[in-house]
């Protein structure tokens, strides 16, 4: 097991089996976020903050599109089972402790987005000698970079004044989401010979 993709081929490309597994996971996560942002996006924007929903929706869609086109896909028999567990994990989930259900759902979505954007770092799997001109390599870098930008909306919302009365509930839900998403990510990687960096999910 290595912390990085590999062995790379002579052109510095990531093995297709690893590309397939990682891209499938990322498409599942960012696709779920795109769908949920799409449902949350009204036809007519009524508040300034809703412009961010529009941005999140289109950026998530872009990431999915990039991954679909940049990946060298190969058959992966484990994907059926894994994808089912991933999709189940992304289901909208209102967090406990917030009586206002629409707000609780919005916080639930924000915790999922925070965990996916902050906790998943696909570019950190690239070894030093990965080919920077390879579309998959560039896509992973883009996914990670754009995730850190998208994350800012979740940080602003989750740290915002409106959630101060529910800070403990928000914090607990967010930590749980991080643990859950990182666990799924680690399992996906382990199946293709990659050990995730030691993180919050690996408590003794």
């Amino acid at each position: 097991m290595s912390e990085f993709f590999g062995p790379l081929d002579s052109e510095g490309r990531v093995p297709p089996r690893q590309q397939t597994r990682v891209a499938a996971f990322l498409i599942s996560a960012h696709g779920a976020l795109a769908r949920q942002f799409a449902f949350a996006l009204p036809l007519k924007l009524e508040s300034a903050w809703q412009t961010e929903l529009n941005a999140q929706f289109y950026r998530e869609t872009e990431l999915v599109s990039l991954l679909l086109r940049a990946t060298s896909w190969v058959p992966d028999v484990a994907l059926g089972y894994m994808a089912a567990s991933w999709e189940t994990a992304w289901f909208p989930r209102p967090i406990e402790g917030i009586p206002d259900q629409p707000l609780a759902l919005a916080v639930g979505l924000a915790t999922l987005a925070h965990a996916a954007h902050a906790g998943i770092r696909p570019a950190a799997l690239l070894p030093v000698d990965a080919n920077t001109n390879d579309p998959f390599v560039m896509t992973l870098r883009r996914v990670e970079f754009e995730s850190s930008r998208l994350l800012q909306a979740q940080i602003l919302f989750l740290k915002g004044e409106s959630l101060v009365p529910f800070r403990d509930a928000v914090n607990s839900a967010l930590e749980r989401r991080h643990t859950e998403v990182r666990k799924l990510w680690s399992e996906a990687l382990e199946g293709v010979g990659i050990s995730a960096r030691e993180g919050n999910d690996e408590k003794p």
Binding site: N171, H178, E198, G199
Partner: peptide
Amino acid sequence: GASDKPALF
């Protein structure tokens, strides 16, 4: 580094 990274604060 390898210490835990609290998610929000």
